[in-house]
């Protein structure tokens, strides 16, 4: 271990505490006895779709267009997943084949 046990534990504890505080924030603010504000209820309905789209961008944030091998594996595999899912609506099939496709592309095609 590079540092003392106490210091390691303290770093893990602080990370855990900050993470759970972030996750608990909306519940601490809106989760009391009072009724949930209408705006929050509305956001609860519409925000997930926005968040998912942002998360896709987040997963792809590190691709660049300097060489085909930097962006084609992700883009091709994402299109495959989307296409499969539109067609078959089977989440395991979409994710499984998409991931296999990506792995083959990064390991064997664009090396």
């Amino acid at each position: 271990m590079p540092i003392s046990i106490q210091h390691s534990l303290a770093i893990i504890a602080v990370t855990a505490l900050c993470t759970v505080l972030l996750r608990a924030f909306p519940f601490l603010v809106f989760g009391g006895k009072k009724e949930v504000p209408k705006t929050v209820r509305y956001l609860g309905d519409v925000l997930p779709a926005s968040i998912m789209a942002v998360l896709v961008v987040y997963c792809l944030r590190n691709i660049d267009f300097a060489a085909a091998g930097h962006y084609l594996p992700s883009l091709v595999s994402c299109l495959l997943v989307a296409g499969l899912h539109f067609w078959k609506k089977n989440i395991l099939l979409s994710i499984g084949l998409g991931t296999v496709c990506y792995m083959i592309l990064v390991q064997a095609v664009f090396v």
Partner: peptide, 21 residues
């Protein structure tokens, strides 16, 4: 296992499609 982390991206893409439909 290089590239296996793409399964998370795939999960989000599939969910976007599902919500879209």
């Amino acid at each position: 296992s290089t590239g296996i982390d793409f399964s998370m991206t795939a999960l989000f893409v599939a969910i976007v499609v599902e919500q879209w439909q």
